[in-house]
């Protein structure tokens, strides 16, 4: 079955799976997981250089930047101003105007502060950024972000790193129906079926970090996620059968022996 390409802000991606670079046991394991995932976009965080310890190897030494598009995030930012500042620094460090915008509203849940997120989106879009905001699974927040100029909407499936899978399937369906920009389920994926479900619901892509990096075998899980995203996408395009309460026989009822 021929699919339409996965395009965000005019840029085409080969894979609908976007992966993180955090929490890996080592950089080589991360590089292997990235290769197994088939992803061609990775997220990174923007942090102060460790001045006293310059011996540590650079993350970028382990990312194939010819193949991978780098998406800096504003993780850990709690105000619009902080996120805007971090986005601007990320742009200078990476020389790309794309940003995964996060404005966190609460430490324990890491749920987004939607009001500040919308405000930061508006400012950064005006400055020429391609803004991909991490948001709540709220169709109205997604619509407002789109109106503010977001290049995609990235609702959470469940809290970051929770591995709970998509908690509000119905909201995700509604967001799918509303969204005129790419819909990427970001955060909350625990295992392959969660990623497949996101795609079956019609998401254009899935973004994950912990589900792969935290698995006992990250490289194998990256491979599983690659297949899950492909399978879920195909199932969405194929059009699933309706759910029914009772059985419908698959074998003919005529011609039974002895009747």
């Amino acid at each position: 079955m021929v699919d339409t390409p996965f395009v965000i802000a005019g840029r085409t991606f080969a894979s609908r799976l976007i992966v993180g670079t955090g929490k890996y046991s080592s950089h080589p394991v991360m590089a292997q997981a990235h290769a197994a995932s088939g992803a061609d976009m990775v997220t990174v965080a923007v942090r102060r250089v460790n001045i006293s310890d310059r011996s540590r190897e650079s993350l970028l030494d382990y990312i194939d930047t010819d193949r991978m598009f780098i998406l800096p995030n504003t993780a850990g930012c709690y105000t619009a101003d902080e996120a805007i500042r971090t986005a601007r620094l990320g742009r200078e460090a990476g020389l790309s105007n794309w940003v995964k915008l996060e404005v966190i509203g609460d430490e324990r849940t890491l749920f987004p502060d939607n009001e500040a997120l919308i405000e930061a989106t508006r400012v950064l879009v005006r400055e020429g950024f391609i803004v991909l905001p991490y948001t709540n699974d709220d169709p109205i927040a997604c619509r407002k972000l789109e109106d503010a100029g977001a290049a995609a909407v990235m609702p959470l499936g469940a809290p970051i790193g929770s591995g709970l899978g998509i908690q509000n399937v119905n909201n995700m369906r509604i967001i799918r129906e509303f969204a005129r920009v790419p819909l990427i389920v970001d955060a909350g994926v625990g295992t392959a079926s969660d990623a497949a479900l996101a795609m079956e619901l019609g998401a254009d892509g899935v973004l994950m970090n912990t589900a792969i990096a935290g698995a006992q075998e990250p490289v194998a899980m990256a491979d599983a996620m690659k297949h899950a995203v492909i399978a879920g996408r195909l199932a969405y395009l194929a059009g699933r059968i309706p759910k029914k309460m009772y059985a419908t026989a698959s074998s003919p009822v005529q011609g039974m022996v002895g009747r």
Binding site: V44, A45, V46, V49
Partner: peptide, 9 residues
């Protein structure tokens, strides 16, 4: 302030 990219999600 000098910043660089580190692992993140």
């Amino acid at each position: 302030e000098i910043v660089n990219f580190v692992g993140g999600g």
